[in-house]
Computed example of a mutant assay.
Amino acid sequence: MIERSRPIETVEGGPTVEDMLRTVEEMDTPDGYKAELIRGKIVMTPWSKFSYFPPMESLQEQLKAHSPDGHVATFAPFLFSFPSAGRAYGPDVYVVDRAVFKEQGRHGDAENLSLVAEFTSSSTKDVDWQEKLRVYGELVPVYLVVDMQAEEITCFSDPSPQGYRAHKTVSFGNPLSVPAPFDFEIDTTALKTA
């Protein structure tokens, strides 16, 4: 049997966040791309470059060793929704309450995230530094921006309705302190790709 795409019914007055999430879930995203809800639109962005795998793996392994009880550090391709902001993102690396994976849906609630990390590229840098910083800054305890072009990593923490209240930036090669609920220093030497 051949699979056929189904038309997506629109809702009068425009689609809701749930309508858009359902659309993202039903999309046949081309290989090498992920779909996210950014600025109220469905946006397809390419997955990270192969050369990003070693630094992503290094960060994931370090986070795994210091994650809060019941949380898992991963870079599995899952979407997390921020309903109050009308957004849904698929972070590059993240730490999340393991209980979220017992749900039957295809996206998780962002309230389960304890940390997200985004690795910048020329096509995503502005979204990582602006859009995601604002949205994550209201809810997620720790946000790491791994700026691959500047070879720096910034740790944002202490979220509030106005955004993060604390941040620190270091160049690759220098240790970076990550506050509670992690309380450890990231070895950033493995974040260089060359």
Rank of each mutant, 00 (worst) to 15 (best):
T45C: 07
T45K: 13
T45N: 13
P46K: 13
P46G: 13
W47V: 13
S48K: 10
S48T: 08
S48M: 09
F53C: 14
P54I: 06
P55S: 09
M56V: 04
M56E: 09
M56G: 13
E57T: 07
S58W: 00
S58C: 03
S58V: 00
L59W: 05
Q60K: 03
Q60E: 07
E61M: 04
E61G: 03
E61L: 05
Q62G: 06
L63Y: 01
L63K: 00
K64L: 01
K64S: 07
K64P: 00
K64V: 00
K64Q: 03
A65G: 00
A65E: 03
H66I: 01
S67Y: 00
S67A: 11
P68G: 03
D69K: 03
D69Q: 05
G70D: 01
H71T: 02
H71S: 02
A73E: 02
A73H: 01
T74Q: 03
F75E: 04
F75D: 07
A76E: 01
A76D: 01
P77L: 06
P77D: 09
L79A: 02
F80W: 03
F80P: 10
F80S: 09
S81G: 04
F82P: 11
P83T: 05
S84V: 07
S84D: 07
A85K: 08
G86A: 06
G86C: 07
R87W: 02
R87T: 07
A88M: 02
Y89T: 10
Y89F: 14
P91L: 01
D92E: 04
D92A: 08
V93M: 04
Y94M: 11
Y94E: 08
V95I: 04
V96F: 02
V96H: 02
R98H: 05
R98T: 06
A99C: 04
F101R: 02
K102A: 14
K102N: 13
E103R: 06
E103H: 05
E103A: 08
Q104W: 07
G105P: 02
G105M: 05
G105D: 10
R106W: 12
H107E: 10
H107F: 13
G108T: 09
A110G: 14
A110D: 08
L113E: 07
L113C: 10
L113N: 10
S114N: 09
S114T: 14
L115I: 04
V116F: 06
V116M: 07
E118W: 09
F119N: 15
F119P: 15
F119V: 14
S121N: 10
S121P: 14
S121D: 10
S122E: 15
S122K: 15
S123C: 12
T124S: 15
K125C: 08
D126E: 14
D128L: 13
W129L: 15
W129I: 12
W129H: 14
W129E: 13
E131Y: 15
K132T: 12
K132G: 12
K132Q: 11
L133W: 07
R134V: 15
R134P: 07
R134K: 15
R134Q: 15
Y136S: 09
Y136L: 09
E138H: 08
L139W: 06
L139C: 08
P141R: 15
